[in-house]
């Protein structure tokens, strides 16, 4: 067995124990003459759900793409799990890649693979030694964990509805038990019931699996329901980070308009009403997970 020990120890990683799994400092992103980010700073706390909001075109997605290494920033530094992404060599990069999961806006499922095979892609990529049998089991329980019916596992993405595709994308994002989860507008295009379920699912998974979640959203209900803190992007940087009451205390006009507009008030009101319910909800966390066990 001693000869096998080498690869095992090489690929082991400790769960991140620091305070800030994501640290963005002095980020500058430009496209031609247009500056999207100018000296943007942001720290994401370990184990929180951070909501990221901002008007259209303020660079929420660009920020996410910078953090996950798809967009090389013009200036600044981004640390993920204490390692710089911006200066990383390819090899170093890959070390962080097997510790995060990303849900893209449209799901970005591979259209020629079934849902189950989609889930298996990252596992096969990082851990090729895992047996076919276990791979199939993993794919199945991840699909069920993401709130899809089990028979969705051998369907193609084109056979699923938009909401189901999002869940399938979530299953793939969770495939390798990441510590960090990026969600790009997960509830956009879902009906209120579906969006509510997705929010609850995100919260439950975050608590059960101990995830840190970076959540881009336009959905005020999502912000009120599940985000621990909210970061507001405006004027090419993060103008405020904090809980919603803290944000409401600031007097930035965009923040006031955002949270105190008609929709903001409605979300606030409905949140107050359901706050007792959400306390109860936390107790029986995985309620909507498979209930077939009698």
């Amino acid at each position: 067995m001693s000869d096998e020990e080498e690869p095992r120890t090489l690929r082991r990683h400790e769960r991140f124990k620091g305070d800030f799994p994501i640290v963005v400092e002095g980020l500058v992103n430009r496209f031609g003459s247009q500056t999207v980010h100018e000296n943007l700073d942001l720290k994401v706390r370990n184990g929180e759900i951070l909501g990221v909001v901002g008007g259209s075109g303020t660079g929420k997605s660009v920020l996410m793409r910078s953090i996950i290494g798809l967009q090389r920033p013009n200036e600044g530094n981004i640390d993920v799990f204490g390692r710089s992404i911006t200066e990383a060599e390819t090899d170093e990069d890959i070390r962080a890649r097997n510790r995060w999961g990303v849900l893209f806006q449209g799901g970005a499922l591979f259209s020629t693979l079934t849902v189950g095979e989609n889930v298996q892609v990252p596992i096969k990529q990082f851990y090729p030694e895992i047996s076919e049998q276990l791979l199939n089991e993993i794919a199945r329980y991840k699909v069920v964990l993401s709130g899809l019916p089990e028979d969705a596992v051998d369907k193609y993405p084109s056979e699923l509805s938009g909401g189901m595709r999002k869940r399938a994308g979530l299953a793939r994002a969770l495939a390798i038990d990441p510590e960090l989860l990026f969600l790009d507008e997960p509830t956009a295009g879902l009906d209120p019931i579906g969006a509510d379920k997705f929010d609850r699912l995100t919260r439950e998974l975050q608590q059960t699996l101990g995830l840190t979640v970076f959540l881009i959203t336009h959905d005020l209900d999502t912000l009120y329901a599940i985000c621990d803190r909210v970061a507001v992007l405006a004027d090419k940087r993060v103008i405020a980070v904090g809980t919603i009451p803290e944000l409401l205390a600031t007097d930035h006009p965009w923040i006031q308009e955002y949270f105190n507009g008609a929709r903001g008030r409605a979300a606030q009101g409905s949140m107050a009403k359901s706050s007792e319910k959400s306390a109860a909800r936390a107790d029986n966390m995985m309620d909507n997970a498979p209930s077939s066990r009698a």
Partner: peptide, 18 residues
């Protein structure tokens, strides 16, 4: 918590399209 969350979801049959 994890064991409870997973429940009893699946057999190991293939996830390929039939």
């Amino acid at each position: 918590r994890l064991i409870k969350a997973l429940g009893e979801s699946a057999d190991s049959s293939t996830v390929r399209a039939p």
